[in-house]
């Protein structure tokens, strides 16, 4: 017994170090395998509030640019609206809606690491939940991962854990969108079979297989394509429409049918 106590006293610094390292490793490794850690994320109220305060100051410096961008988006939406054949007596029944949209602002963005997260200033009190899709006017951005009362962190598409269903526009050839960490302007689309005709410049949009994003949200255009090692699938470099370094206003998409879809799928798997 005395020996053990002596040992502990003698190596107490080393033991303390080992203990702290085990804690750090546990947090890191656990979130490698699954979701981002519950505790270490910037939707936490301390970090959220500090980022929120400084972002408030930041916003004033690019109000002009953001206004212009919103105006341009409105212009596109209006031209779509006016050129549509008028439908008599439009009544929007809220019970029939498939998606609801919440707007928000980015308060922290990162794109230099290999697992990037974006923090937005909308949280539980704005009914943001895990696994909602986040887009901008130009294209997709990521998926909500953690929420606090006022903030939420978004797993960016520039994240090695990100895996989003995407397809070639106007076809039904779909694959998975991943990121190889090389370049923040480019993501990779894999699992497109080699018999699909491809052209540089073709548009890639989100697919219908996911219950997170609606179909046909723009992602980017084909920059380069190769066959992968199995020689039966393409590996496509997709240049993003979004400038991931410059994001301010975002839309969070809530798929109102998601719960039903998930329940159904779960039941099917169980049987």
């Amino acid at each position: 017994m005395q020996q053990i106590i002596k040992f502990i006293i003698r190596y107490k610094i080393f033991l303390l170090y080992i203990l702290l390292m085990i804690i750090a490793f546990a947090f890191t490794v656990r979130s490698h395998s699954y979701h981002q850690s519950r505790f270490f994320n910037s939707s936490h109220w301390i970090s959220g509030n500090i980022y929120g305060t400084f972002q408030g100051i930041d916003t004033y410096f690019d109000l002009d640019d953001e206004n212009e961008r919103l105006l341009r988006e409105n212009q596109i939406l209006r031209s779509k609206l006016y050129n549509q054949a008028p439908i008599p007596n439009i009544t929007i029944d809220t019970a029939d809606l498939k998606y609801s949209i919440i707007s928000g602002q980015v308060i922290k963005n990162s794109y230099a690491g290999s697992r990037n997260y974006i923090t937005i200033n909308r949280g539980k009190r704005d009914s943001i939940k895990q696994d909602m899709g986040v887009i901008t006017d130009l294209g997709i951005l990521g998926i909500v991962e953690n929420t606090s009362r006022k903030f939420a962190t978004v797993q960016s598409i520039l994240n090695t854990k990100s895996n989003i269903n995407a397809k070639l526009k106007n076809t039904n050839h779909f694959g998975s969108l991943i990121w190889d960490t090389e370049n923040y302007n480019t993501v990779q689309l894999i699992d497109i079979p080699r018999l699909v005709p491809l052209n540089i410049g073709d548009t890639i949009v989100t697919g219908a297989m996911s219950s997170i994003f609606p179909e046909n949200i723009p992602i980017g255009t084909i920059k380069k394509y190769d066959l992968d090692t199995s020689k039966s699938f393409y590996r496509i470099d997709v240049g993003l429409f979004n400038d991931m370094t410059n994001i301010k206003n975002v839309y969070i998409i809530n798929n109102l049918d998601r719960k039903e879809i998930q329940e159904l799928e779960e039941r099917t798997e169980n049987e």
């Binding site: 610094i13 080393f14 170090y17 702290l20 390292m21 804690i23 750090a24 490793f25 546990a26 947090f27 890191t28 979130s31 490698h32 981002q36 850690s37 505790f39 270490f40 994320n41 910037s42 936490h44 301390i46 970090s47 500090i50 980022y51 922290k108 990162s110 690491g113 697992r115 990037n116 997260y117 923090t119 962190t153």
Partner: peptide, 24 residues
């Protein structure tokens, strides 16, 4: 110190592990 940096930069506990190591 590492923990507070991690809290802000969404890096799990990687800063914590690295900083504790050099402290030791």
């Amino acid at each position: 110190l590492g923990l507070s940096i991690d809290l802000f930069s969404d890096t799990m506990a990687m800063h914590t592990a690295a900083t504790t190591t050099i402290a030791y």
